[in-house]
Design a protein around this nucleic acid. Structure first.
Length: 243
DNA sequence: AACATTCACAACCGCGCAGTG
DNA sequence: CCACTGCGCGGTTGTGAATGT
């Protein structure tokens, strides 16, 4: 269907981003946001395609990205979520504040998958030390002058839905990942996961500005409440007639 | 010390979906 | 309704670093 390529490859840079490119992209998004990825590189004077800019921003330059090793809780959460959602990395990422789908996908393919395959909790990875998060460019968003603050600019549709940090997973007992006993319709997840639950029990819609505040909240009892409610709903689904 | 192997992760690719004229 | 565009997602690859022999 005559689909044009995402960008003309002619004369555009590819491969690893340079510090200058990073700074240019950050500066441009700080000033103008990223309403149009396709037009962004031209406007910013970058020799990159919009897709590449978007990927770089979402996976690396975003100010709210949490760099560094995944905690055990985060890994457990990924395993649980993957058992429920499958390879819906963006949805999984939406439940792990500061983590990107790409990062989660990488972690899954590198060690979590192997960990499950071996089904040996004590199966230690060959590497004893994990190298620090690779940093080709040191961008300090802590700097008051460089921190991109885009309050009215959604970072991404999935990222704005952050609602919880990883939770501990005693809930596991009520759910068997290996069991195919029940299937949950996608609409359930899109509706359920699009909501966040405050500790008070009230529900926030994804678009609620309060959600953004929660994105920076540490793991808390509210998160556990979220999971308890979520799994309870999932359990209830089993008793519902198939639609 | 040198080479081989494995790992981690950034980046690319292509497809599908939603929005728009 | 159709064609087209832009975006987002998931799969895959490339490469440098770490580790083993």
């Amino acid at each position: 269907m005559g689909r044009s390529p995402c960008c003309e490859k002619m004369g555009l840079n590819r491969g690893p981003w340079t510090a200058e490119e990073d700074m240019t992209l950050i500066a441009h998004i700080e000033r103008h946001g990223h309403s149009n990825w396709r037009a962004l590189p031209k406007q910013a004077g970058l020799l990159r395609c919009g897709k590449s800019c978007r990927l770089r921003w979402i996976n690396y330059l975003r100010p709210d990205i949490k760099r560094g090793n995944f905690t055990g809780e985060e890994e457990d959460a990924i395993i649980q979520l993957h058992a429920m959602l499958g390879n819906r990395w963006s949805m999984i990422a939406a439940r792990l504040p500061g983590r990107t789908d790409n990062e989660i996908k990488n972690v899954w393919h590198t060690h979590l998958k192997k960990r499950l395959d071996s089904s040996m909790p004590s199966a230690a990875p060959k590497r004893k030390t994990k190298k620090p998060a690779a940093v080709t460019t040191v961008i300090t968003h802590d700097s008051p002058t460089s921190a991109p603050v885009l309050p009215e600019q959604p970072i991404s549709s999935s990222a704005t839905n952050y609602s919880m940090a990883s939770s501990s997973l005693e809930i596991t007992e009520s759910f068997s990942p290996d069991s195919q006993e029940f299937e949950i319709d996608d609409s359930f997840w899109s509706e359920t996961l699009a909501m966040t639950v405050e500790s008070s029990g009230s529900v926030m819609e994804a678009g609620d500005p309060r959600v953004a505040d929660r994105a920076s909240m540490p793991s808390s009892n509210a998160d556990m409440d979220f999971w308890v409610q979520l799994f309870m709903q999932a359990g209830d689904m089993q008793n519902l007639p198939q639609i």
